[in-house]
Amino acid sequence: MKNNGIPLIGILTARKSDGTIAGNGPLFIEIQKKLISLNGISFVFIPEEVETDHISGYCYSPEERRWKKESFPYPDLVYNRIPFRSSEKKEKSQWLFKHLQEKNIPFFNPCFIDKYELFQLLKKDRTLRDYLPETILVQKQHELLDFLKNFGGIYLKPTQSSKGKGIVRLRLDGPSGIQLKGINRLETYPSIAHFWEEWAEELFKKQYLAQEEIRPAEYEGKRFDFRILAHGNQDGYTLTGVGIRLSQEQEITTHIPLGGKLLPYQLVQSNEHDEFIQTIISTIGKSLSSHLGYFGEFTIDAGLSKTGRYYIYEVNSKPMSFDEADIEEKKIENLCRLFLQLIEKSSKI
């Protein structure tokens, strides 16, 4: 297929273990529909089907309501939606990123974000430093105990997971005991040594970090977090939408798949919240892009403590779909306009 001067966007994904193409099909379809209305077109592809002179990919036809496999020239821009960290680390994926740079084809987002690397990066910024919970990499038993004693409660998180997977909370229990609470588990250990004996292998295998427990502000007796979506534009970064996630049966995480409940931002909105959100979006976007490569979109998980202090918990480079229809619609709009802006910008270089 020739693009005949029409902006061509390649959406990069990966193959699942069963051989089928992974990714958010409904999102890809909506992007295609929006791009067509803006006189552009997109196709979905995987690194293994990239050749030196063409790419085999899948193009969605809204008229026929089906995907068609075709041969495409290299796109004007690549939108990285590889959903698995393991796939992104593969040799062919890394070759492709390097190849795109050599061909001056803009692409985003360049990688998944390691939680501890993120903490170290954001800590360098004077504005963001005050919003970060104290965090250490879990390396030694005595360091973890000192950290736990210092705060009374801490969260343990795998540095390379998302959607709340693997998170547990530790609290002191009596003179030497430790209570562990996870999404579906509650355990008590007589001492840090007993905990370490059972958990050390997991902590090192998945490289966990420890983060001070923030006592969160509540809405109707339940903890809530901000889920913030931002996109790049010509002027830097813009807020696409904010959703509120409320804890339900468990308060370890507010992620919807793990039992969190959705609330409209308007229920808790204030000038202070708005100011905090606007302040961090641009600074986080610029920090990520200057150190890791261009981030055209990201989500921020942030919260408010009982004492009224704001915290940044996580930043995600491959946002899940928002359950709020208006935010999801604005996401498609902002994404597609960003695609075209970046293509126009790169054509002038």
Rank of each mutant, 00 (worst) to 15 (best):
residue 126 R to D: 14
residue 262 L to F: 11
residue 296 G to K: 07
residue 186 L to V: 05
residue 208 Y to M: 04
residue 10 G to C: 03
residue 154 I to C: 02
residue 212 E to P: 05
residue 203 L to H: 03
residue 63 E to K: 14
residue 237 Y to D: 11
residue 160 Q to R: 15
residue 145 L to T: 05
residue 161 S to D: 13
residue 326 D to A: 04
residue 146 D to A: 14
residue 341 Q to M: 13
residue 282 S to L: 14
residue 94 Q to V: 07
residue 255 H to K: 03
residue 313 Y to V: 00
residue 97 F to Y: 14
residue 265 Y to V: 05
residue 272 E to C: 12
residue 196 W to R: 11
residue 176 S to F: 12
residue 67 W to D: 03
residue 205 K to N: 13
residue 250 Q to L: 04
residue 93 S to T: 09
residue 61 S to P: 02
residue 286 K to I: 13
residue 255 H to I: 03
residue 182 G to P: 05
residue 84 F to P: 06
residue 200 A to P: 07
residue 103 K to R: 13
residue 41 I to M: 13
residue 98 K to P: 08
residue 308 G to E: 11
residue 171 R to E: 06
residue 1 M to P: 08
residue 30 E to V: 00
residue 76 D to Q: 03
residue 168 V to N: 11
residue 279 T to A: 09
residue 255 H to E: 04
residue 7 P to E: 01
residue 153 G to Q: 12
residue 35 L to D: 00
residue 309 R to F: 12
residue 160 Q to W: 11
residue 6 I to V: 13
residue 292 L to I: 07
residue 168 V to F: 10
residue 76 D to F: 00
residue 49 E to N: 14
residue 313 Y to N: 03
residue 253 T to C: 06
residue 93 S to C: 09
residue 298 F to H: 04
residue 149 K to R: 13
residue 194 H to F: 13
residue 179 Q to A: 14
residue 305 S to N: 09
residue 17 S to Y: 11
residue 128 L to H: 08
residue 311 Y to P: 07
residue 43 F to M: 01
residue 329 E to I: 07
residue 37 S to W: 07
residue 133 P to I: 11
residue 103 K to H: 09
residue 273 H to Y: 12
residue 107 F to W: 01
residue 304 L to A: 06
residue 86 S to F: 05
residue 141 Q to N: 10
residue 27 L to Y: 07
residue 312 I to S: 06
residue 324 E to N: 02
residue 26 P to M: 08
residue 304 L to Y: 07
residue 132 L to N: 09
residue 160 Q to G: 14
residue 204 F to Y: 13
residue 152 G to I: 01
residue 143 E to I: 04
residue 176 S to G: 09
residue 180 L to D: 02
residue 171 R to F: 02
residue 54 H to P: 04
residue 29 I to L: 06
residue 65 R to C: 08
residue 83 P to C: 03
residue 83 P to R: 06
residue 318 K to A: 01
residue 20 T to I: 05
residue 270 S to T: 13
residue 33 K to E: 10
residue 74 Y to N: 01
residue 111 C to R: 14
residue 213 E to T: 10
residue 78 V to P: 00
residue 89 K to T: 06
residue 214 I to Y: 04
residue 84 F to K: 11
residue 4 N to A: 10
residue 221 G to S: 03
residue 5 G to T: 00
residue 31 I to K: 09
residue 322 F to G: 00
residue 264 P to M: 13
residue 35 L to R: 02
residue 248 Q to M: 12
residue 272 E to P: 07
residue 100 L to H: 04
residue 194 H to V: 13
residue 23 G to A: 03
residue 101 Q to T: 06
residue 268 V to G: 10
residue 310 Y to N: 02
residue 253 T to A: 07
residue 211 Q to C: 10
residue 266 Q to M: 11
residue 27 L to I: 06
residue 151 F to I: 01
residue 296 G to F: 03
residue 177 G to C: 04
residue 53 D to P: 06
residue 89 K to Q: 15
residue 96 L to C: 07
residue 280 I to C: 01
residue 222 K to Q: 15
residue 124 K to H: 03
residue 238 T to D: 15
residue 340 L to R: 04
residue 290 S to K: 10
residue 52 T to A: 15
residue 141 Q to C: 08
residue 198 E to T: 11
residue 339 F to W: 08
residue 210 A to T: 01
residue 295 F to T: 02
residue 28 F to R: 12
residue 255 H to N: 11
residue 224 F to D: 04
residue 220 E to M: 11
residue 188 T to K: 15
residue 278 Q to I: 09
residue 88 E to S: 03
residue 67 W to G: 02
